[in-house]
Design a protein around this nucleic acid. Structure first.
Length: 290
DNA sequence: CATCAGGCGAGAC
DNA sequence: GTCTCGCCTGAT
């Protein structure tokens, strides 16, 4: 069990920000054994918490979020090797928020509102499929589509505490699925995109490992070769899987805000290398309040 | 009933 | 290169 301070870090905000569709709020309560009066370090444990679950890298992690603390239910080794990097906990987001122009009231508000959002380091293949599904779609339905895919084509697993979960299906598993079966997962017209993209990766026309080693522009160009991946989705993949934080995906929300708040143009140059993080603050702020 | 949700590909020009 | 148009499906 690992305890983390909540400074610029909120699981709820990351969950709601819609960059990861397999981070979910869980309804059931944790076993009483997780409740401690003290976690050591001279701090007392949180009492009221929300419970979340994340499936990634073939694992399922339970997370509790309280007012001041977040508890990871895993070993110190697993936290260090996997989740610390996954949640980008070594980046100083306060520093990035500090770069914001003090005259830019809108961006200051957006960043204050979403200061707990972090840009995750998700699996490349999972993000490719997830964001192909995301086009002209809403978060609730996107999650449902991904659930169907995982349950139908992903490996079924169980945690020691008995929670059943499914790995994200491999490219091969989705390439073997018929177009008809993909339509049955309620993917709609995106079924054709998933079908063809899965095949091009399973057949080796596109090399995901190679993309993982590329810089931003080169990776984006390669991703655009995938059927169903346009500029916006390619930039999301670069940001959420390859951690290219210079990527600035423009979707309907961002497009609207740029028109309303930045008629003279958004000063992306000022925030070089961190555009994607600010994009996510703007997106999340507009998604929740717009 | 029309419109919209984190766009994209195909075809016209 | 830029523009328009149709597209699955569920919620409002």
């Amino acid at each position: 069990m690992i305890w983390v301070e909540k400074e610029n870090f909120s699981i709820k905000q990351i969950c709601d920000s819609g960059q990861c569709f397999r981070l979910r709020k869980l309804e059931s309560s944790l076993p009483a054994s997780y409740r401690h009066d003290s976690l050591g370090k001279g701090r007392s444990a949180v009492t009221e918490t929300e419970r979340y679950g994340i499936t990634a890298f073939g694992r399922f992690l339970e997370i509790e979020e309280g007012a001041d603390d977040i508890i990871f239910h895993c070993t110190a080794e697993e936290f260090e090797q996997i989740w610390k990097g996954y949640f980008d906990l070594e980046e100083d987001y306060g520093k990035i928020i500090g770069l914001i122009d003090e005259k830019d009231d809108y961006l200051l508000k957006a960043a204050a509102f979403g200061s707990g959002v972090r840009i995750l380091r998700q699996d490349l293949w999972e993000v490719i499929v997830s964001f192909i599904i995301s086009q002209q779609n809403n978060i609730k339905r996107i999650r449902k589509c991904i659930d169907y895919l995982c349950e139908k084509y992903g490996e079924k697993k169980q945690t020691k505490s008995g929670i059943i979960y499914y790995d994200f299906p491999t490219p091969g598993a989705l390439a073997d699925a018929s177009l008809e079966d993909l339509y049955a997962c309620n993917l709609g017209y995106r079924s054709r995109y998933i079908h063809k993209t899965a095949a091009s990766i399973a057949e080796g026309q596109i090399d995901l490992n190679a993309i993982g080693r590329m810089g931003y522009e080169e990776a984006k160009t390669e991703l655009l070769k995938l059927h169903g991946v346009g500029v916006k989705v390619a930039e999301c993949i670069c940001l959420f899987a390859l951690h290219k934080t210079e990527a600035f995906p423009v979707d309907t929300h961002i497009h609207k805000v740029l028109g309303e708040q930045y008629p003279g143009g958004f000063e992306a140059e000022r925030y070089k290398g961190y555009e994607g993080i600010l994009q996510q603050y703007i997106f999340y702020y507009d998604l929740m309040n717009g």
